[in-house]
Write a protein that binds this DNA or RNA. Structure first.
Lengths: 243, 243
DNA sequence: CGTAGGTTTGACTGATCTCAAGTTTGGTGG
DNA sequence: CCACCAAACTTGAGATCAGTCAAACCTACG
């Protein structure tokens, strides 16, 4: 496993710092954590529902999602993740995985023993606070997704997903929220919004035709945020300014 | 505010104890917490989206839910709560409410300052652990709800909701999971499952006719758990044996 | 330049919604 | 104890959003 990891977890630390203003010694302690670095290919399962997990994964590069499946074969994505995100903080205190974690693209992850993270949080209040905030914001996003799939129509659902992605794209330091590349197929969008692939395709075209977005391959440009916010019923408050 | 509160928070402490095996001195510390007790009527808003909240509410008696609304007027319930549940642990670290908390029935709640809870968690590892587990299980339930509203058909959705309610009814010490009274109208079930009232009514009748459940007013008896589990695609693992 | 994966289109189907009208239930005052 | 009222529940019929099936079309890449 050789690649440039001189500052591999920099984005992660920046994110925690944004959540709870870490003192320099806390950042140093994070950098000093023993971690296993891994390159992972696209569409690679990192955690499987039912696994016993004693490490948390941090996404250094690339994109990932978490999903659950019904016995009938419907796959529901419950969250997307961008570089810097902790993929499974829940394993800090719950060792049995209740859902799957999978990469969307090739990337790099860092694995840290939950015992190490717990000790760190115990000793360093700012880190504890950052972990708490991260977990609670995670939950807030799930609530918004329940509303999204339960209460919005197809066009609105997809628009909402795009707005969230743009907002988090920016929060993760990847660039402007107005223009980003979706690291996923339309099938994946369908799995995240609880819609069929065909309908996703048609609703994307409608958003395009309505002038709210312009698509070029998988690059999405939100050309009219006001209209987009209205179509999507998007209010970023649920991201608590830090997701 | 006068009512028998000699052991009002007993159920809450029992729940935390189940999550993290509290030493007696931790239980005593919980009992010693300064708290505001309140009687609340049915359909009473405890927290409104956007509020700044510096207390956490514990549901002592009665039932409650949390919900969000779209600008189009669709109300989506994102969770139900039974006696002993913390209604808004997220306010421990996020003071801005991102959703509403409302009672379903008349009941009693205890309000505890988040500062007090944070101090307690800092000093007492078992309590910290219990809070963490509670928050993480809360999130796990949200994920299952995303799957439920995003990936299951009407009949299955309602069946799943009933299975979860039965399981938590038992976990809360209210009785057998086979027979319970739903403290809500069919309209409320519709808001939780993202369905129309009319369709909820029809799907309940189908569950009844199929022999999985028997209804009498709002009392539901699950007479065939095997069939119900199959219809609902219900696997209680996501409750982490403690919700 | 062939192939596989991804996207787009068309036609048909169906689950679920909406609207609207009953019917039953539970609570309240006489 | 009964009459009444509002809320909750049930039923029917028609409309529609979204799903399924099937085929065609891109486009990246070996």
């Amino acid at each position: 496993m050789t690649f440039d990891d001189s500052n591999a977890i920099g984005r992660f630390i920046r994110k925690l710092d944004g959540l709870a203003a870490l003192p320099d010694r806390d950042k140093a302690a994070l950098r000093a954590l023993p971690l296993r670095l891994k390159r992972v290919p696209a569409n690679h399962m990192l955690v499987r529902e039912g696994d016993t997990v004693n490490e948390c994964s941090i996404l250094l590069d690339g994109f990932a999602c978490r999903h659950k499946d019904t016995s009938g074969g419907h796959r529901q994505i419950v969250s997307f993740h961008l570089p810097g995100d902790i993929l499974d903080l829940q394993h800090l205190w719950l060792s049995r995985a209740d859902h799957n974690v999978e990469t969307l693209t090739a990337g790099r992850i860092a694995l840290i023993a939950t015992a190490d993270l717990r000790r760190l949080a115990e000793e360093r209040p700012a880190i504890d606070r950052a972990f708490w905030r991260d977990a609670l914001i995670d939950a807030s996003i799930f609530r918004e997704w329940v509303l999204n799939v339960g209460g919005r129509d197809g066009k609105s659902r997809i628009a909402h997903m795009l707005c969230e992605f743009g907002a988090r794209w920016q929060a993760a330091g990847l660039g402007s929220p107005d223009r980003f590349e979706l690291p996923m197929t339309q099938q994946v969008i369908a799995e995240a919004t609880g819609m069929s692939l065909v309908h996703v395709n048609r609703m994307l075209q409608e958003l395009d035709r309505s002038g709210a977005i312009v698509r070029d391959k998988r690059v999405v440009e939100i050309v009219d945020w006001d209209r987009m916010r209205e179509i999507a019923d998007f209010d970023p408050a649920y991201l608590h300014a830090a997701a």
